[in-house]
């Protein structure tokens, strides 16, 4: 799972070497442009080109982008298709196209940002933007716990699969999934308790401290 996220975040391309704040701001500017320009305007093509160019600059493989888009389109398509289906006339189709184009462009921009900006850089940037410390502390802990819980969930799924000999009914599947969720909740809260104890043992007093400069030389 971990290599699914910000997979190319540690690359060494030109985009990766930009200052973090510049990456964030340019991504915001691009999304702003993608969502504000009317779709029939030629400018939208330029925005699309810039986003595409940014992807190639960052050396993000196109196959990866295409795969992510493949998973991204169906829900957006479902949401957008309800417009032309319920209207007669071309307004519905125009709105449909608008939503699809804007959604796709801003999604690719976000994808670019994810892949040129590792999470610790994002945290440091948010800190420079004066996001409250409490939020950042929770966020950084959440990021750590996430992978642990995913592994925990994987183990529980494996255990469930190993104990299922026939295809259960729909209700049984739902029940076992909800129980899985409840069990995960109990284990997670117990783990939070143990982690809190470990943090106390290492001098945690409820205030978060940060290393001023995040290290650049991490692998």
């Amino acid at each position: 799972m971990s290599d699914y996220l910000d997979r190319f975040g540690r690359g060494q391309s030109m985009c990766h070497r930009w200052p973090p704040l510049a990456k964030l701001l340019s991504a915001i500017a691009m999304i702003l442009a993608a969502t504000c320009v009317p779709i029939a305007h030629p400018l939208i093509g330029i925005v699309a080109c810039v986003i595409f160019f940014a992807h190639t600059l960052a050396r993000i493989p196109l196959a990866y982008v295409a795969r992510r888009l493949l998973f991204f389109w169906p829900p957006l398509f479902l949401m957008a298709i309800s417009l032309p289906l319920s209207q007669s006339g071309q307004t519905g189709w125009l709105l449909f196209a608008t939503i699809l184009v804007r959604g796709t462009l801003s999604f690719s921009t976000a994808l670019w940002l994810v892949n040129v900006m590792p999470f610790d850089q994002l945290l440091a940037t948010l800190r420079r933007l004066r996001v409250p410390d409490v939020l950042l502390a929770i966020l950084s802990l959440m990021y750590r716990f996430l992978f642990v819980l995913w592994d925990e969930l994987d183990r529980m799924r494996t255990a469930r699969a190993a104990r299922l000999f026939r295809k259960p009914s729909l209700w049984a599947t739902w029940r076992s999934a909800a129980h899985l969720l409840g069990r995960l909740l109990i284990r997670a809260l117990d783990r939070a308790d143990r982690i809190h104890g470990a943090m106390l043992a290492r001098g945690w007093d409820g205030r978060s401290r940060w290393i001023e400069q995040p290290r650049e030389d991490r692998p």
Partner: peptide
């Protein structure tokens, strides 16, 4: 308190992971 932050962080991670069931 000193435990709010780890507890809230764990809850957030839990909701995130729980959405994958």
């Amino acid at each position: 308190g000193d435990r709010t932050i780890p507890l809230t962080g764990m809850m957030a991670a839990l909701v995130f992971a729980g959405q994958m069931v």
